[in-house]
């Protein structure tokens, strides 16, 4: 355990030094703040549930941005250190390969969690400071949104590690990471939609659709946040979906957790078999 924390600490130290932490936090805070204030312009500020609007816009932002940031910091983690030669020295120390991997995961996740918490928290804080009335239910929904955003980030960090542990060159890892982002964030939903349109509800059953939604962490995240609370689903236009959804929030959360743990375990396996 101590080795994991030592590696995590170094990872955070590096993140602070090469300004990953600063850049990510500023990016998320900037986008969150502008979405909060510009995004509410058309609806006006009279809405009682101002924070729910923010949750809808922020979770859409998360789906695009967090997987990208997570893949950017993770795809290089193993193959990059191997190419630079730093991994050879690290592994000659009394530390297991799985400890190196978990330590890095913990470090990268902390960086991402810190940036999300601070960036999105700034938006909520600013909203509260302008005097908008926010009830407890909205706060809970907001906190849940941040928590699940971090889980989404964890899933894509783990996927990035898996890529990093499998490929031989950094460039390949980068290319695959971009491909994964495109598939999960953009293409998957379009393909799903196209399939449903073509199918016209003839062959594909509801449970099949549910399974397809769980097979993409971004979709699991979207469903979890946009249908999770009554207030939010009303704003997101997903109220209809929420009523008919057969996927309960715990199932969606479990899917997100599995998306973090399974690739991480596979990455550890691939890493342990690699010859240096």
């Amino acid at each position: 355990m101590r080795n994991i924390l030592i590696v995590a600490r170094k990872e955070i130290q590096e993140g602070l030094r090469n300004r990953w932490v600063l850049a990510t936090t500023l990016l998320l805070a900037g986008l969150a703040l502008s979405l909060t204030f510009l995004g509410s312009a058309p609806t006006g500020t009279v809405g009682v549930r101002a924070l729910d609007v923010v949750i809808v816009s922020l979770s859409s932002l998360t789906i695009f941005l967090l997987p990208l940031i997570a893949l950017l910091i993770s795809h290089d983690a193993i193959v990059g250190e191997m190419e630079r030669g730093t991994m050879l020295l690290l592994l000659s120390y009394p530390v297991g390969r799985w400890q190196v991997l978990l330590g890095k995961f913990l470090g990268h996740l902390s960086i991402l969690a810190f940036a999300t918490l601070l960036g999105y928290g700034a938006a909520a804080g600013a909203l509260a400071a302008t005097g908008a009335e926010i009830d407890a239910e909205s706060w809970i929904a907001f906190a849940t949104m941040i928590g699940s955003s971090i889980m989404l980030g964890a899933a894509f960090i783990a996927v990035g590690y898996l890529v990093s542990a499998l490929v031989r060159e950094r460039g390949t890892a980068g290319g695959i990471a971009v491909g994964i982002w495109l598939v999960f964030v953009l293409i998957y939903d379009m393909a799903l939609l196209g399939m449903l349109v073509v199918d016209q509800g003839q062959i594909l059953s509801g449970s099949f659709l549910n399974a397809l939604l769980l097979l993409n962490p971004a979709d699991a995240y979207r469903l979890f946040n946009l249908t999770g609370s009554a207030g939010v689903s009303a704003f997101s236009g997903m109220a209809g979906v929420a009523q008919s959804a057969t996927l309960s929030p715990p199932v969606l959360l479990a899917a997100l957790a599995a998306w973090a743990l399974v690739p991480l375990a596979l990455a550890a396996l691939a890493f342990s078999r690699r010859e240096l």
Partner: peptide
Amino acid sequence: PESVSFNAAL
């Protein structure tokens, strides 16, 4: 190691 390298940021 031969031609040792370290993380440049620290």
